[in-house]
């Protein structure tokens, strides 16, 4: 089997690498078949993050630092990536299927006239024989896809491929590449942070989701408290978003985010097919609903038939008890 050189685009957020970057390194290792994994980082100050990619399995890291790379733009990051690509001529590329990865990967694939296997949740086999599994129909089915020939390019869904164990003893070169970033056609004039507490919904290990049963924007407060206690994020059904209890960015489902946390708590959500498409692949599902006939109980590992405004505060108390023990 011939080994591959794989470029992995890492992603920093508020000065720290996102977990999906380490997962992407693990995917790259599998794809490389024993070849070389080269981490890539772009930003205005990312040099210091390079060594962390190495401890998670990258063999070496290339960084491009430029004031125009402080914020992601497809032109800026596209130019930086193409410069690194030309220098390295990799056999394969791995991105995270994040907002940034979704925006940039098709542009790069188009420039390179390559295929692109998006939103990969698992890899079977390795090296040349690797086969990629990805959800279709919003998780109602799955497909196995392989690259026909030429450059292999995949993006991986956060929270699905386990990162390698961190190994502080690993060492590798972190060097910078200088790239002229010019002619950005999009200018970002404002960024408004709406997401709560910095835990990204698609990467969260715990999601506490509320539906129309939450009854008001204020009704989300106990859910937020529970999410915070568990280090998780708050999500919602479209019912709750349509009723203006929360922002559409929290919507989970076929026309919202698809999440696969370790723990999904659905409160006051009936379990419409469109909602289930976005969460039914979560590892453990808890449903809290007044209606014993609610569909959501069909996918729940554990269910409580009851009033969420009674149950959630009690859960918070119980969890606090075990956290303090």
């Amino acid at each position: 089997m011939y080994t591959k050189k794989v470029l992995v685009l890492g992603e920093a957020r508020e000065g720290a690498l996102r977990n999906v970057s380490f997962e992407a390194i693990a995917a790259a290792k599998t794809v490389s078949g024993g070849g070389e994994v080269v981490g890539v980082l772009f930003g205005d100050a990312v040099q210091s993050l390079g060594s962390e990619m190495i401890t998670y399995g990258a063999d070496r890291v290339l960084t491009v630092e430029h004031p125009h790379l402080k914020h992601y733009t497809s032109d800026g990051f596209g130019q930086a990536f193409m410069a690194v690509y030309e220098q390295e001529k990799p056999d394969a590329i791995v991105f995270g299927h994040t907002s940034q990865g979704k925006d940039l990967s098709p542009k790069i694939a188009s420039k390179l006239a390559s295929g692109l296997i998006s939103d990969v949740t698992a890899i079977e086999g390795e090296g040349d024989d690797a086969i990629f599994i990805r959800p279709i129909y919003s998780g109602k089915a799955f497909e196995k896809v392989k690259n026909k020939e030429g450059l292999l390019f995949i993006s991986i869904r956060p929270n699905n491929i386990a990162p390698l164990a961190k190994d502080e003893s690993r060492s590798g070169d972190v060097s910078s590449v200088s790239v002229d970033i010019t002619n950005l056609r999009s200018v970002i004039s404002e960024v408004v942070r709406k997401s709560t507490e910095g835990v990204d919904l698609s990467e969260a290990k715990v999601v506490v989701a509320g539906g129309r049963g939450v009854k008001s924007a204020e009704g989300f407060a106990p859910l937020e408290e529970l999410a915070k206690l568990l280090g998780g994020a708050v999500g919602a059904s479209r019912g709750a978003c349509d009723a203006d209890y929360c922002d559409y960015s929290l919507q989970i489902g076929q026309t919202g985010k698809v999440v696969t946390p370790d723990l999904y708590i659905a409160a006051g959500i009936s379990g419409a097919i469109q909602h289930m498409a976005g969460m039914s692949n979560s590892k453990v599902i808890v449903a809290i609903n007044k209606d014993p006939e609610a569909n959501i109980f069909k996918v729940a590992d554990y269910g409580i038939v009851g009033d969420l405004f009674e149950v959630i505060p009690m859960m918070i108390e119980e969890i606090k008890k075990i956290k303090t023990n």
């Binding site: 907002s99 960024v191 408004v192 960015s249």
Partner: peptide, 12 residues
């Protein structure tokens, strides 16, 4: 929309 945050962009 960028993963829940919102970005204002000027372009042509």
């Amino acid at each position: 929309d960028v993963e829940g945050d919102s970005e204002t962009i000027e372009t042509s």
